[in-house]
């Protein structure tokens, strides 16, 4: 028997199911999406969004060279424009953590790594924990784990809880983001339940998706998760971070997410410490918008590096 986050593990009772009304949550998300963000607010929002990006590459073909390029872009997204901040983190597979760590050394840009049999989570717990420990030792500041959807969909919530709690322990000083893979949970009620469960188990961040399953992040799913974070904060006074990931491709999308965080959780969450956007092509679209603001002319991708 052990205690995690104030809860005796063996005595853990899953949170009560709380309903989410799908139509209403989608309507609210759509309504927030109509906010008109212009001029200085747009500029500030876009800069903020850059600082919140977990610049991600999660391909079988990733190599040290690719990761170093990405790190350079993360630290200084647009050379020559010192007003544009670094991204929040670079997100890679565990074997590339050391490369990223070295490339980002001293920059303040965090190294995030996916673990626990990412993306499927179909694996043995002991092996998952071992992977987490080695990844943290290799220099990861943040671990993005996936929940065991097999256990979750079978109703074995205690197993899901235990795995998260054990991973929190295995992370040591590293922060843990818990990926729910909402596209596989499908209903908002289950997303809400899984969010609460992950928070109860000690997640520092909750995250929508691996990016390997469609649909990945959506505005309504994010809203549901933000509302769980808000409720947890109301109840306990403790903040939990949020990371929508996958499918966020445009500056316009990014601003919609920012509006949603701003109006659901408020100012305190409007920082890379509490909100991240898991994305790859998003950064270039934001850079093009920022260049458009500077130049007064629409920009082209030909002036931006890959990644």
């Amino acid at each position: 028997m052990s205690v995690h986050n104030g809860v005796v593990r063996s005595a853990y009772h899953p949170p009560a199911w709380k309903a989410v009304d799908a139509v209403a949550v989608e309507a609210r998300a759509a309504a927030l999406g109509t906010r008109s963000i212009k001029k200085a607010a747009k500029l500030q929002g876009l800069l903020l969004a850059v600082s919140m990006i977990d610049l991600t590459t999660l391909e079988g073909s990733d190599t040290p060279g690719k990761v170093r390029d990405l790190c350079a872009k993360a630290m200084r997204p647009l050379p020559g424009r010192s007003d544009i901040p670094s991204t929040g983190a670079v997100c890679v597979y565990p074997p590339l953590v050391a490369v990223a760590k070295e490339a980002l050394a001293g920059s303040g840009v965090k190294v995030a790594a996916v673990a626990t049999y990412f993306p499927s989570g179909q694996g043995d717990l002991a092996m998952k924990l071992e992977e987490v420990r080695r990844t943290v030792e290799a220099g990861a500041d943040e671990i993005d784990m996936v929940i065991d959807r097999r256990a979750f969909l079978m109703g074995d919530y205690a197993k899901v809880f235990d795995e998260i709690a054990a991973t929190v322990e295995a992370c040591g000083p590293a922060h843990l983001k818990v990926i729910l893979e909402t596209g596989e949970l499908q209903t908002y009620d289950k997303v809400r339940f899984a969010s609460q469960l992950a928070i109860d188990a000690g997640a520092h961040f909750i995250k929508t998706s691996t990016g390997k399953v469609q649909p990945a992040a959506t505005l309504p799913v994010t809203l549901v998760m933000l509302e769980v974070i808000r409720e947890h904060y109301f109840k306990t006074g403790k903040m939990v971070g949020m990371k929508p990931a996958g499918g966020i491709r445009t500056a316009k999308d990014a601003l919609k997410y920012l509006v949603m965080v701003n109006e659901t959780l408020g100012d305190a969450w409007m920082s890379p410490d509490w909100f991240r956007l898991g994305a790859s092509v998003l950064l270039n679209d934001i850079l093009m918008q920022l260049e458009k603001e500077r130049l007064g002319a629409y920009d082209s991708l030909r002036y931006h590096t890959l990644g």
Binding site: A41, Q44, L48, M52, A72, M75, S86, L258
Partner: peptide, 19 residues
């Protein structure tokens, strides 16, 4: 060299009037 980076902008995001 240690790369030069820029920190995230300060919090306090206000919407501009959008008339």
């Amino acid at each position: 060299q240690t790369p030069k980076t820029t920190a995230a902008p300060a919090a306090g995001w206000k919407y501009e009037p959008a008339l």
